[in-house]
Design a protein around this nucleic acid. Structure first.
Length: 359
DNA sequence: ATAAATGATTTTCT
DNA sequence: AGAAAATCATTTAT
């Protein structure tokens, strides 16, 4: 009666068009087909799997110690076999009841046929009605079984339920990368692999982390200022060295370093982009131009925090870190530093600014 | 015990 | 495909 199909749309998507049955039902009910496919795929309605239940039960009953993966998996399998048993016994019961009922009705009709002529059409019609009724009951059984299996799956297979925080050093590494690439915190696939290796997590976990970090940083920048300063200071030394080296290398012609007053937060990406282009143009040799630009850009990011921090100087008193969301454009997205916004399609403008996150 | 932080998933948008 | 946004379920801090 309820909508297990609606509640778990994923499964309908998964099982909707997978297995082509050898026998096609006359009424090709798509819902019934989905249920059948799913039950088959989950091993509920498939072959009986002889020692499956015994093995699972034994494994489950073996030891109740650590919360390891194998224990949970066996537990899952035990419950699945339990569901399957219930399903099969119920199905058998329904089948038996159906047969008994039909024979009963047939007997009744036969008795009546003595007093009244009964056409075979009528008998057929009655049988059809009975079968339809019982098949609808069967479908309800299948549906509730599907629901149970899905609940079981979500109970055991949802990674959200066994989430563990990353190690301290892993978050350290990730934060370092994030805040030193604050203007464009989108690590490439290679960078993601590198980070995953360093943190001993998977690449998709790195992607998850950056997705969460970006959205949460953007949503409440004030909450992350402390952290930003901390990690900027942490990489300050190396960043300073690198920038110094880069500047020295590029100062063959002394670009007079105008160093516009971008002290209190008006440090926008367009500036960085110009800087990058200038350097590229005056560098002469265009090789690795993008790389140098990116490096300098990241250094600028880290240095910005250092400047803000050292500018405050009074470390016990003011602590008024008041720099603005420099890296975010008006729409609330990170500005793309790599694509210099070519003139081809200026379709989007600063339309609606409704970003007032006051929680 | 409740709120905040956090990792993972799902949905929506591009 | 990949990211943003919303949401979920757990861990951690208060």
């Amino acid at each position: 009666m309820n909508g297990c199909i609606i509640a778990h749309r994923n499964f309908t998507v998964i099982y909707g068009l997978s297995i082509r049955g050898a026998q096609e039902e006359d009424p090709p009910d798509p819902q019934l087909m989905r249920l059948d496919n799913m039950l088959l795929a989950e091993g509920v309605s498939g072959p009986e799997k002889g020692g499956g239940s015994a093995a699972a039960a034994a494994a489950a009953a073996a030891s109740g110690g650590s919360s390891d993966n194998s224990i949970e998996h066996s537990d899952y399998r035990a419950k699945l076999t339990q569901i399957r048993q219930i399903y099969h016994t119920e199905l058998e019961k329904y089948e038996q009841a159906c047969n008994e009922f039909t024979t009963h009705v047939m007997n009744l009709l036969r008795e009546q046929s003595r007093t009244r002529p009964i056409s075979p059409k009528e008998i057929e019609r009655m049988v059809g009605i009975i079968h339809r009724k019982f098949s609808s009951i069967q479908m309800q059984l299948k549906q509730s079984t599907c629901e149970a299996v899905m609940i079981l799956r979500s109970r055991f297979l949802d990674a959200r339920r066994k989430r563990r925080n990353f190690s301290k050093q892993a978050t350290e590494i990730l934060n370092e990368y994030f805040y030193s690439h604050l203007s464009n915190p989108y690590p490439s696939e290679e960078a993601k692999e590198e980070l995953a290796k360093k943190c001993s997590i998977t690449v998709s976990q790195v992607s998850n982390w950056f997705g969460n970090k970006r959205i949460r940083y953007k949503k409440n920048i004030g909450k992350f200022q402390e952290e930003a300063n901390l990690y900027a200071a942490k990489t300050a030394v190396t960043a300073a060295h690198a920038v110094a080296a880069a500047v020295q290398n590029n100062q063959t012609n002394s670009p007079t370093t105008p160093n516009s007053d971008c002290s209190s937060g008006s440090f926008n990406l367009p500036n960085s982009g110009d800087m990058f282009m200038n350097m590229q143009s005056l560098n002469g040799d265009s090789y690795q131009g993008s790389q140098v630009g990116a490096n300098v850009q990241s250094q600028v990011d880290t240095l910005r925090h250092v400047i803000n921090q050292t500018g405050g100087y009074s470390d016990g008193l003011g602590a008024n870190s008041l720099y603005s969301p420099h890296n975010l454009n008006a729409n609330g997205g990170w500005q793309d530093a790599t694509t210099p916004s070519s003139v081809t399609s200026p379709t989007e403008g600063p339309g609606s600014v409704h970003s007032d996150t006051s929680n």
